[in-house]
Nucleic acid binder design. Structure first.
Ligand SMILES: [Mn+2]
Ligand SMILES: [Mn+2]
Ligand SMILES: [Zn+2]
Ligand SMILES: [Zn+2]
Lengths: 145, 145
DNA sequence: TAAAAAATGTCATTCATTGTCCATATCTCC
DNA sequence: GGAGATATGGACAATGAATGACATTTTTTA
């Protein structure tokens, strides 16, 4: 975990961005709330606890930088805002989204090898990443019908 | 094609919505530009040619109705607006998005049976639909490097 | 054709995100 | 450690897609 933190800080520095306490605080907030799919306002609220003077625009700007550096990925769960997630070295995991209660469930299994092989061959498309959302009804909503 | 058009009109009527010329014009504009992933402004511009008095809010409202009726699907290609697509009876197709030029390529092959079977069994999740975006570099951008 | 209900057009408003500006903090090099 | 060059932060304004409000018009159905 600390490894990841310092690796990210290094990437920020290497690309010529300055290492400010605000940027460190944003990175920490995201790292400490992995798999929670925070949006900008939520990250802002978290950072503000430790760093009350920070401005919302700074959080937005930091997220733009982190996205550019491939540190985070933008996620859209159709709820009117962008949410963020730490990028893992491997491919992005998938998300199940309940059409009834809105719950988001993560699926770590990849299982996209077939389609990726087909895409690279048939479409001559060099794959960098993917994003799979599966919509449906979660167990809880099925049971309570 | 005409079948699809009248089928959609019937669905609008069956659900208790009125069949207005504005709604017909919006449906036609989408049908006549299938696979083009139009956004609201683009649909508005198209409808305005035949129906100059229509208001933008009417187009937005019509799209909300069509989405509710499962006639169309909202698409997000990370370009700051929602784009729309006619829903086919079968599962939604996939999209390849070029990280260099932004081109969107459609992939009609499904190839998600494995992962869907796994999700339904392991997560007890009743699948309704899915949305797969694959990011990478298109053939053209690879060749011109 | 007319009454009732719903939809349209216009305009204002919301709200996430981005731009502007200048004081301030960071980094480099000594 | 400190000075200087330069990027960054904070405050606030601005943007723009999307939605809300409401008076007027259109559709439906009898
Ligand atoms: Mn996730
Ligand atoms: Mn498509
Ligand atoms: Zn649910
Ligand atoms: Zn390309």
């Amino acid at each position: 975990m600390n490894d990841i933190f310092y690796d990210i800080l290094n990437r920020v520095k290497e690309k010529g961005y300055k290492l400010t306490p605000q940027r460190k605080a944003v990175v920490l907030a995201i790292l400490n709330h992995d798999h929670m799919h925070l949006n900008t306002e939520e990250i802002y609220a978290l950072v503000k606890e430790e760093y009350p003077k920070i401005g919302l625009a700074t959080v937005y700007r930091t997220l733009i930088v982190l996205d550019e550096l491939d540190v985070i990925t933008k996620m859209n769960f159709d709820d009117g805002c962008i949410r963020y997630e730490i990028n893992s070295e491997t491919h992005q995991h998938h998300h199940l989204i309940c059409r009834n209660c809105g719950k988001v469930i993560e699926v770590m299994e990849d299982l996209l090898d077939d389609i990726e092989a087909m895409v690279e061959e048939k479409y001559q498309f060099k794959i960098i990443d993917h994003n799979l959302k599966i919509y449906g009804l979660c167990k809880h909503c099925l049971d309570n019908q």
